[in-house]
Write a protein that binds this DNA or RNA. Sequence first.
DNA 1: GTTAGATATTAACAAAATATTAATAAGAGG
DNA 2: CCTCTTATTAATATTTTGTTAATATCTAAC
Lengths: 275, 275
Amino acid sequence: MKKEYKSEAEFLKDYNPKDFEQLSMTADILLISISDEETNNYRKTNDKMMSILLVKRDDYPFKGKWCLPGGFLNPVGETLEECAKRVLKKETNLQDIYLEQLYTFDNPKRDPRTRVVSTSYMALVDKNKLTDMINENACWFDVVLLEDNKKEVEVTLSNGIDTIHLKIKKVLREKTTDRYDFISENNNEIAFDHDLVIVAGLERLRNKLNYTDIVFNMMPKYFTLGELQKVYEVILNKKLLDPAFRRIIAGKVEKTNKMKTGEGHRPSALFKYKG
Amino acid sequence: MKKEYKSEAEFLKDYNPKDFEQLSMTADILLISISDEETNNYRKTNDKMMSILLVKRDDYPFKGKWCLPGGFLNPVGETLEECAKRVLKKETNLQDIYLEQLYTFDNPKRDPRTRVVSTSYMALVDKNKLTDMINENACWFDVVLLEDNKKEVEVTLSNGIDTIHLKIKKVLREKTTDRYDFISENNNEIAFDHDLVIVAGLERLRNKLNYTDIVFNMMPKYFTLGELQKVYEVILNKKLLDPAFRRIIAGKVEKTNKMKTGEGHRPSALFKYKG
DNA sequence: GTTAGATATTAACAAAATATTAATAAGAGG
DNA sequence: CCTCTTATTAATATTTTGTTAATATCTAAC
């Protein structure tokens, strides 16, 4: 029989959340940076690449597998974003960097322990600004986008020692907005459903590049237009034409009186983000 | 002392989620439609408007307040989207309509009972397609966007009897992507933090209008270009020029041999979504 | 009937944005 | 000083978008 309450306060005094089935939540972070030969200890090319931070699990479940940094939400007073920041600080000592909520993943089978819903965050940083050492179980992996069409996405992650190959099938879900359901075809190459988080994050970054200034979160203070263009090209995975690129970017940056020399060709002007 | 496990299976056998603090989750749905005089029982104008579905709470907390349809996630096997669909079916008997995850709201104080994290979904529908009656505690509210600048958003919701005035302060959070934190300035005009969900949803819809065909989810099968243009104008909250609009939309629709007459002016051709 | 009012539809032109090609600039390194 | 490489910009073609205005065809009022 339902008890009749006379006020919100009276109702709340009686309420016990343990009367209901509950669950756990985590916040996972996709930390993306641009790497080049200076910040890369195994490649000998001059190419820029995207790289993401992975952590090796030293406990069950998925013991020994790589995964995104993440951790359980403390339900007593902590927000998911605070949780994400706490984890990020622990792994990289980074604070005050660009962070945005990406998506909430909730496949009931995504965690073998119990029902765990995960809200993922995307964070962008310029790796070179990382002065402190990152946690010893964490490592940067270069990202190579092998394939990205309407049927599938294929990504290879590599740190020079380990190589992780991710393959995700796309199933058209909604024609009007060209949305797809992503179905992992990986057999525990990476822990949990973090392959889906990575793919969703790379796509979000690619989209935001076109209509925001998000890119400057992963640039150093001073950069040449050539460097900036390479970053765009790496993220978009295609060549851009110089004059077109310069027109688009012109209003966002301002020329400094510094120059970058010693590169074996005509020196280029250094720019900085205007704003 | 930490126990040493030899396999994933052995570890899982010992794992008890109740050893940790847990929480509850809900899925909330922002159902948006376009209303006009035919589907509106109190306005006598010919204008199209956006309208959203609200539900009156008949239990504590927030007893008697309006809120978005939503419900608790069943942690045993139900996904958040399944939960959203279940609630939507209960309130409107609608199935198979456009649904997309909007954002996860997790302010620890958003629910006075206990820690409840809510993942919100946006759903679009053409109200006229609703053949079944909606639940008796549910009601369509017309949406009037009074103000939307870099400092604040103001929205009025009205069903002819009740009027709900929402005011939300914006605080710039991130310059590069022009993102804002939304701070509710409402004193329980609407239950929970559903004012934030509404504002986030309206903004998402406005953005998606520009680069997707999302609008056709709220259109009838056959429509005139004038009607379609009005829907754009209502959502974007501004006038559009005819030839420009027609050029943009031309590739997305196809002319049928039907005409719409009886409107007191030159008849217009009926179009349908191509795809 | 005739005319006014309303929106539909398209033509025509102007302006702005974008794409493309190619010319010129200037340090590094032989 | 010659070649390589990338930087930078000029010049032009093409496409897209903005604007104005002309014409079409219905309903309703007179």
